[in-house]
């Protein structure tokens, strides 16, 4: 499984502003806003369950940077170029700070 496939479900899970950890970006921050925009182009069918490292912002950041650098043909590979490194770090921190997002329990329609 490539790094790309590991990152995508995390972005799916970055949907709902539940339970931000202390010290994490505010749920009202610019980073949280950018993280919230993702609506899960990819997810369960792409092959991965909820990854444990979703709470590790640094790993998440590295995976997002790798997604940008490795190239690829998915929509996410295109969209990642909208963000610079600072924004990616902020998005990673915003996503990692979320706890128990409802989308994680989705069984889908």
């Amino acid at each position: 499984m490539g790094r790309y496939h590991a990152i995508l479900p995390m972005l799916v899970l970055g949907l709902t502003p539940c339970g931000y950890a202390q010290g994490a970006p505010s749920a009202l921050s610019q980073s949280a806003s950018q993280a919230a925009v993702c609506s899960g182009c990819h997810g369960k069918l792409s092959g991965v369950a909820v990854p444990a490292l979703v709470s590790d912002a640094r790993v998440l950041e590295q995976q997002m940077l790798a997604l940008r650098q490795e190239g690829g043909d998915s929509a996410m590979h295109r969209l990642i170029h909208a963000y610079d490194e600072t924004q990616i770090r902020g998005i990673a921190e915003a996503l990692a700070s979320q706890k128990n997002p409802p989308a994680a329990q989705s069984t889908g329609p």
């Binding site: 799916v12 949907l15 609506s39 899960g40 182009c41 990819h42 997810g43 369960k44 069918l45 792409s46 409802p102 989308a103 989705s106 889908g108 329609p109």
Partner: peptide, 8 residues
Amino acid sequence: DWFSAIIQ
């Protein structure tokens, strides 16, 4: 996947 996520 996208449809599943957005519906959820």
